[in-house]
Simulated scan of single mutants.
Amino acid sequence: MAAIGTLLQLRRFSAPLVLFLAGFVVLNPGHCEEQVPLILWTSERVSLPAQSPPAAGHVVGPQQLAGYLQRALRASPKNVVLFLQDKLISCCVSDELIGQVLSTMKTQSVPYTAIYTALQPSKEAASLSMDSSLGGGRSLLQARGHRERERERERQRKMKEKAQIYAPVEFKEGEDTCVLLWARSLSVSILRSGRWEDHDLTSSTFGEGVSPKLHGSSCDKTRARLVLNYENVLGHRSFKLIFAMTQRLYKVSARRWFTLDALELEYDGTKATFNGSRSVYAPAEYSYRCESVSSFRWPLLVPRSSKDPANQWRVSFQDFQIQGFNVSGSEFSYASDCAGFFSPGIWMGLMTSLLMVLVLTYGLHMIMQLRTMDRFDDPKGPAISVPQTE
Rank of each mutant, 00 (worst) to 15 (best):
V210T: 08
V210M: 12
S211H: 06
S211Y: 12
G216N: 07
G216A: 14
G216I: 03
S218L: 01
S218Y: 07
C219G: 05
D220L: 04
D220S: 05
K221Y: 13
T222L: 05
R223C: 04
R223Q: 06
A224V: 07
A224S: 06
R225K: 12
L226C: 09
L226M: 08
L228H: 10
N229L: 14
E231F: 02
E231K: 01
V233C: 01
L234V: 03
G235D: 03
H236K: 13
S238G: 02
S238K: 03
S238R: 13
S238C: 05
F239D: 09
F239P: 09
K240S: 12
L241D: 10
L241A: 06
L241K: 02
I242D: 15
A244M: 13
A244C: 12
T246D: 14
Q247M: 04
R248W: 05
R248G: 14
K251E: 03
S253Y: 10
A254L: 14
R256E: 02
R256G: 09
W257K: 14
W257T: 08
L260V: 11
D261C: 00
A262S: 12
L263V: 08
E264T: 09
Y267Q: 12
D268L: 00
T273D: 01
F274G: 12
N275V: 05
N275I: 04
N275M: 08
S277K: 07
